[in-house]
Amino acid sequence: MKVWASHLAVVALLLALGFLLPPYHATNMARIMVLAVFAMGYNLAFGYTGLLSLGHALFFAAGIYAAGLPIWHWGLGAAPALILGLLGGGIVAGVTGLLALRTAGVSFMIVTLMFAQAGYLTLLYFNGVTGGDEGFALPASGRMLFGADLSTDLPRYLTAWALFSATFLATLALVRSRFGRVMVALRENEERARMLGINPFTAKLAVLVLSGAASGLAGAAYGVLFGYAGASFATIQYSILPMLYVLLGGAGTVAGPLLGAVLMFALIEVANDLTSAWLFIVGAVLVIVVLFAPKGILGALRDRFFRGLP
């Protein structure tokens, strides 16, 4: 119960921030929450199940385009577009997983990287349909949700908050369920899990589909809330981003992805006053976290103080 209470407090705090923050920071916070949804999806695969993927940009982009293209070409509304994004990410992750999950470790990383790269190049190749490198702006008709205009501050924040909260609490429920226990078992010792009657392939495939669905939802939300879709969302940078948030905040913790995203945004914001070299900061944080805090911030705190933290 304490666990649920503390996580619900995070959700409530974020809701309050929507009404307290000035517009510039509110927009940033909305962006953070959407990217945290992406990172939470990534965390299911990497943090809980031990599947280190370098191709999650593919699932994020699948969500953006599954939502964005019907809006652009056929004038679809935001609500069905978000659902399409969720499905798009899940389906693409399922197909990828069917092949990639025959490998493990370094091979799995490279296979997912290659699939994502092929996806990115495919978006460029069919630029007549996808808008290619330049992408496209989502028309206003596709940015209306239940009568609210998502290009305005408060509706945008509240939509991001709702999607974040749903994913956040669903993750908490999942990792505390029987299946959550199986995920951790696969991460810790796959062969032992197999000898307890667990089918590693189907279990990992299910995780990857869930992870891809969350990533796709995040992608769709990003497109709908901020009004732009482009092939750059399928580049390797967008595979590294959720990994960075998860590593920094704490892999295999429910709140780690949010914490990592907030910290990275804050860091780049502060550094922006000093230098424009934000890529350097991303790189340096990756190296420093891997070297000195491989379990991330919440992971280190859990080891020391809160043993039961999910």
Binding site: L52, V106, I240, A277, F280, G283, L286, V290, P294
Partner: peptide
């Protein structure tokens, strides 16, 4: 193997930014 991939990704960004700067 896995940690070094993450670390060399970090190195990639740092070198790229250094070249840009």
């Amino acid at each position: 193997p896995e940690a070094t991939i993450v670390a060399t990704i970090g190195l990639l960004y740092m070198l790229q930014q250094a070249a840009l700067t």
